[in-house]
């Protein structure tokens, strides 16, 4: 399944908005990690840990072959897909490579979701941009 241009454009907007103000590689890395954490937490909030993990695992597995950098900055663990080393990844591989990898991961995730619940709901689920604040929960997102 090729990523849809619309999905890619939306994910690019999402990333661009997050990292727009950042100039330094470390700050960009932190911004990417922050975005990923927010998307992951939004998914967990709506779908639960299992629902989120299943989607992210599939997206990660499908994307890591094209973007091996993902295996350096993230891992599949008992608590789902974690992107722990984005800043280190940026320093090792450069901003463009890490940005492209995370972008592809999110595009794949969005396309999987679009196939399940429709493209018009994807961004509502992934990043509703602080439309409502969430209450604290038991198991936190990474």
């Amino acid at each position: 399944m090729d990523p849809s241009p619309t999905t890619r454009a939306l994910v690019r907007q999402l990333l661009a908005r997050e990292i727009a103000a950042e100039k330094e590689p470390d700050a960009v890395g932190n911004a990417i990690q922050r975005l990923y954490s927010r998307v992951s937490e939004n998914l967990r909030h709506s779908l639960g840990d299992d629902g989120r993990d299943a989607l992210l695992q599939r997206a990660f597995t499908r994307t890591k072959t094209q973007h091996p950098v993902l295996t350096d900055i993230g891992q599949i663990g008992e608590t789902g897909i974690r992107l722990d080393d984005v800043v280190a990844g940026v320093n090792a591989h450069g901003v463009p490579a890490v940005t492209a990898a995370v972008e592809s991961l999110l595009v794949t995730l969005s396309d999987i979701l679009a196939g399940l619940i429709g493209a018009d709901m994807v961004m509502n689920l992934l990043d509703h941009d602080g439309q409502h604040s969430k209450a604290p929960t038991g198991r936190q997102a990474q």
Binding site: G48, M121, H128, H132
Partner: peptide, 25 residues
């Protein structure tokens, strides 16, 4: 996935008006 097949299900109102929250944990 299944509920959105119904005409009453308005995707544009998720999550602004209708929010799905998982309590499994």
């Amino acid at each position: 996935r299944y509920q959105r097949q119904f005409e009453f299900f308005d995707p544009a109102r998720v999550p602004s008006a209708v929010r799905f929250i998982n309590l499994t944990a």
